[in-house]
Nucleic acid binder design. Structure first.
Length: 338
DNA sequence: TTACGGCTCGC
DNA sequence: GCGAGC
DNA sequence: GTAA
């Protein structure tokens, strides 16, 4: 059992959080009772209002239950007692506020999102993320990835290294980079990468599904320079050939409404094969994005066992009807009882 | 100097 | 066992 | 790359 917090945004309000029972002698919750309330739960003292807008009902129920279990109290209306507001996203929250005409309600304080004052820096770091990943230096790539949100949160334009010294994820090299960017407007390191044919080629090849840093390097060393060159390369794996063949298609994002149509189709076909099967799209679609890079699909069945053997039949059906065309990878996970 | 995620699949 | 994707 |  786990608690997935991510889809909800937590908007802290101005109301003081009442701490209660923190240091009391209250016993730990008993193990045999699932819905018991933990007086020392992490949400103790929170008065929560849930914006139901855009949240699936079942999910809402689970959330209420968990919040209460972990010490929170649920408020039915957005009163002054409320210390925290949960909403699917800012939009849902604003709609709710509008609906309740809460102009006079003091709070919630909306998440502060400064305009990208330091876009000059984060844009360059963003490019380095991709380059280092293409080169196989995931660790370094990840370091830039972590530095970006730290810089983005700053409410001012960085004008000297002192202003960012000591920030988490900003070490000596980052400071040097920032210094160079604020004085010259560019980063010679990046300029170098971007003009380097080897780096450029490896980055390009790495965009093909199934080609990673090692393979990209080998292909480069073989003399390949363009995607066209790769078409004549017979060492490519099946996945890589497909990745190449559908290079543009795979990169094309899926508009949300299309993802929605596909989800519906997937559900219908699933129901046809196995009544009662639950099929939902997750990932960026579930998070409400306007477009999706791919479609993540979760398949379950309430009886906990008839999922066995479902996937292969399902995939076959989807291929027969030409919804699916190719395979990049196979898995047999769903064939097993576990 | 060391850790930075762990697992499955293709080959 | 390596490379790759998630 | 950063941080321990």
């Amino acid at each position: 059992m786990y608690l997935n917090i991510s889809p909800f945004r937590l908007y802290k309000t101005l109301a003081p959080r009442q701490r209660s029972g923190r240091n009391s002698m209250a016993p730990k919750p008993t193990k045999n009772k699932t819905p018991s309330v933990d007086p020392n739960g992490i949400f103790t003292g929170m008065s929560v209002f849930l914006v139901e807008n855009g949240v699936q009902n079942r999910r809402l129920q689970i959330w209420k239950q968990k919040l209460v279990q972990m010490g929170a109290t649920i408020e039915e209306r957005l009163s002054k007692k409320v210390t925290h507001v949960f909403a699917m996203d800012l939009e849902a929250l604003l709609q709710q506020i509008d609906r309740e005409r809460l102009a006079r309600f003091k709070g919630p304080s909306l998440p502060y999102s400064p305009p990208d004052l330091n876009k000059n820096i984060t844009e360059i770091f963003g490019k380095l993320i991709n380059i280092y990943r293409a080169l196989g230096d995931d660790r370094r790539s990840f370091s830039y990835y972590k530095a970006i949100p730290v810089i983005e949160k700053l409410p001012f334009k960085i004008e000297s290294m002192e202003q960012v010294k000591g920030l988490p994820g900003i070490g000596k090299s980052m400071l040097d980079h920032i210094q160079e960017i604020i004085t010259t407007g560019k980063l010679s390191k990046l300029e170098h990468f971007e003009t380097d044919e080897k780096v450029r080629t490896i980055s390009l090849f790495g965009e093909v599904w199934g080609i990673g840093p090692a393979t990209a390097l080998k292909l480069y060393e073989k003399g390949h320079r363009t995607l066209d060159d790769l078409k004549n390369e017979d060492t490519l794996t099946n996945s890589q050939k497909i990745g190449l063949k559908y290079f543009d298609d795979i990169k094309t994002r899926i508009p949300r409404h299309e993802a929605q149509e596909m989800e519906l189709l997937l559900q219908k076909v699933g129901e046809d094969i196995l009544p009662g099967v639950i099929i939902l799209c997750g990932g960026s679609y579930r998070r409400g994005k306007a477009s999706c890079g791919d479609l993540d699909v979760v398949i379950t069945h309430p009886d906990g066992k008839s999922h066995i053997g479902f996937l292969s039949r399902y995939v076959k059906r989807l291929k027969d009807m030409k919804f699916l065309r190719e395979d990049l990878v196979f898995t047999n996970h769903s064939e097993e009882v576990t």
